[in-house]
Design a protein around this nucleic acid. Structure first.
Lengths: 241, 241
DNA sequence: TTCGCCATACTACCATACAAGTTAGAGGCG
DNA sequence: CGCCTCTAACTTGTATGGTAGTATGGCGAA
């Protein structure tokens, strides 16, 4: 298999796809992906120190690839590099959160409009199957599975809109907010409300009612707010001043 | 190369109202900024090879900081790193262009809505001064200056909307498209049309007419399309298949 | 001539060593 | 006792050598 000769961009793209992770990657890429996962899942907490030497020892490699990984994480604002001092996992910043939510909302509102315009019954089975699966996830209290299905639903919307590229941006900003919500225990009632939202959005799109779909979507995306606020109060130590 | 005190980049950094990231101005950062400028201004053309050794020799430093700079450029999709083969300046991709335009439009439409909602006459002098300066730039055929003022105008809109953070995203995506338009000679007539758009947007915002402002903004952002198409035909060698 | 193989010269990648800045703590001095 | 200072142990930043993978050009054989 000489086909594994992919460029760095390809590797990282495939990471965001979450599926089909290539095997042959550079050491730096592996460490980057690993650290990123641990930061996103809060296995490494905000504020934690990430010494080049320590990480290098942990992975059994030299400092160089670790350094490159940390540089990339820094470019994603996941860590802060203080020269000659320390590298730390960046804490949550309300400004960053607001930006992420703002951009995500803006992009997805635009996506919804295209989805209404391009609606075809060809997309109906996929969306209905996804929502049914969400019902089952709620019934079985499968928060993990629901999270995956929720993301799939929004990906399907982007498919309908024929703007799959835009979903990458939605996902980016969604991921940052989701990282915070790991700290919050979602109960089944809240999940059920989200499924209702999905159904309402679906109905408006099938009716090609852009204004209605937008209205529900905005309310849908606003629901996360009280969760964020709760986490901010209960876990203030993970937030920037 | 250790005594790096002040460069012209410092002032440009201070312009961005971003977060208070401690400025680390290492050799790698300088090389990154320099290469980025040269790529963005097309001093280095798409497809050109960027060998670690050559760049290192050019700057009189070792390969390591150059390598880090290239990694960061790679994370911004400005270069492609082909392991053990070469590192090249990435060519234009229509998919990437469409994504950038889509996101920019989505975000700025949202910004405009907030601007209408939050309008106050306090913002009037700044915007009027900016538009007057644009008139002068058109009159003196100062395309360079117009470009700066155009960006300032859209930044001011974000100020009105009280979403300065969102402008960072607008600027990111705007920059990618602007890079292409370097290849196109803007004539004064086109610039005058853009100023008219700005005035129309301004009027709608002062009247707090969100729908009207959005309509003009969409038309405004669509004007670039024919420029892109022209460049794509006249400079096909800089585009990906 | 044309095809296939191999040596060679390139590339990015990784490891190691050294340099320079920061912080914390021990110890001397007022 | 309290404060200042200096040292030592961290940290990240840079330089350099060596390694593995890739493309290319030349040579030999069909």
């Amino acid at each position: 298999m000489t086909e594994v000769v992919t460029t760095k961009q390809d590797e990282r793209e495939s990471l965001s796809m979450a599926y089909s992770i290539p095997e042959r990657r550079s050491t730096a890429d592996i460490i980057f992906a690993q650290l990123r996962d641990e930061i996103m899942s809060l296995d490494i907490l905000p504020g934690a120190k990430l010494s080049e030497s320590e990480v290098a020892a942990k992975f059994g490699v030299s400092r160089q690839p670790v350094r490159e990984a940390l540089n990339l994480l820094s470019s994603e604002d996941l860590v802060t590099i203080q020269p000659q001092k320390a590298t730390r996992v960046r804490k949550f910043s309300m400004a960053r959160i607001d930006t992420a939510r703002f951009v995500r909302r803006a992009v997805e509102v635009e996506v919804i409009k295209f989805a209404c315009k391009n609606w075809s019954d060809l997309y109906r089975p996929g969306l209905e199957r996804c929502m049914s699966a969400q019902d089952r996830a709620v019934a079985t209290h499968d928060t993990q599975g629901f999270h995956v299905l929720d993301e799939e639903f929004h990906a399907l919307l982007a498919d309908v809109a024929q703007t799959p590229f835009a979903f990458a941006r939605i996902k980016e900003n969604k991921a940052y907010v989701d990282r915070i919500c790991v700290l919050s225990l979602k109960n089944t009632d809240e999940m059920a409300v989200l499924v209702d939202d999905h159904r309402a959005i679906f109905e408006h799109i099938t009716a090609q009612d852009a204004a209605g779909a937008e209205h529900v979507l905005r309310a849908h995306l606003a629901r996360i707010e009280k969760t964020i606020e709760a986490v901010r109060l209960s876990n203030a130590e993970y937030f920037d001043a």
